[in-house]
Simulated assay, not measured.
Amino acid sequence: MSRNDQILLYHERMLWRKIIDHNPLFVTFTDKLAAKAHIQKACPDLKLPATLWSGHDPADIPPALFDGDVVIKVNHGCAMNIFVSGGPPDHAAIISQTKRWLRKPFGQRDGEWAYWPIKPTVLVEEKLSLSGGRIATDINVHVCGGVVCHVWVEDRQADRSVLFDRNANPLPGRDPDYPREDQALPVNKRLVDFVREAIAIAPRLAADLDYIRIDFLVTDEQLFAGEIVVYTAAGYATWTNPDIAREIERHWHIEKSDYMRRSHLGPARLYAEALLAKCLSDFGNDEALEAGSKD
């Protein structure tokens, strides 16, 4: 049997994380408010979009906040954002929508456990002027055990993206959000400079996690912290370049996960020992044994 036949694939590891590896830190990272506190402590020199207000009842949002450019969102899910700018908003509609979001559990359909314990909260955040159409809007760095595997850069305003390796060299291949070749984001010096900066910062925010994605927001002047993503694309991420997934698989050592670092009893101990043996078989070195030893 070849190594490729034995090795746990990226999507298998992500499914294992959803079902088995319930690291409490995942809840911190998935909670948008708690993640901001973690980022501020781990990397105080990195700018964050300011939180202008947070609470459990959107009706309590100070009316004056609607006069500026803000983003209204909830902390316990994805794609639940309202962008307020360019005129008086419909307060009633915003309150109604956010109340629906607060009542809505997130992550159940795809088994994203880390969302479930979060206490839903609404927050008002400053709206950054992102560099869409000029540089990019987002830089997302995939990190395994402190090693940057690749970087995904997207321009949400221009519907374009580009991939980089850990040395900020462009990579071939497309992603599912921008799959066409004519959606390749042009590379310029300012973008590469930002990518290099993100590559330098991301491992500081990733702690010693076996795999995590660190997101940054891009303005014309500087990088801002974005989110810390536990379940990239809900665990279904794909790339047309197979080397992208293989690089993650090379460096994502699940024997370094929170689950494998903890002591277990009974059937769980037998399972953890069998999984460690599988990891040793896949990687063929003593590093897995050392990382998987119990405290």
Rank of each mutant, 00 (worst) to 15 (best):
K47E: 07
K47S: 10
L48D: 03
L48V: 09
P49K: 04
G55T: 14
H56V: 15
D57H: 13
P58Q: 06
A59F: 01
I61Y: 01
I61F: 07
P62F: 01
F66Q: 04
D69A: 14
V71I: 13
V71D: 07
K73M: 08
N75Y: 09
N75C: 09
H76A: 08
N81S: 13
I82P: 02
F83S: 11
P88G: 00
P88Q: 09
D90Q: 01
A92K: 11
A93M: 00
A93N: 00
I94A: 12
I94V: 14
R100V: 03
W101E: 05
K104L: 09
R109L: 11
D110E: 15
G111N: 02
W113K: 08
W113V: 05
A114D: 04
A114T: 03
Y115H: 09
W116D: 03
K119L: 12
K119W: 00
L123M: 07
S129N: 11
L130F: 15
S131K: 07
G132T: 02
G132S: 01
G133Q: 04
I135M: 06
A136C: 12
T137A: 14
T137S: 15
T137P: 12
I139T: 09
I139C: 03
N140M: 10
V141N: 01
H142F: 15
V143M: 07
C144E: 09
G145D: 05
G145I: 03
G145P: 00
G145V: 06
V147N: 11
V148E: 04
V151N: 07
R156T: 14
R156P: 13
Q157G: 14
A158N: 13
D159F: 15
R160W: 06
R160D: 08
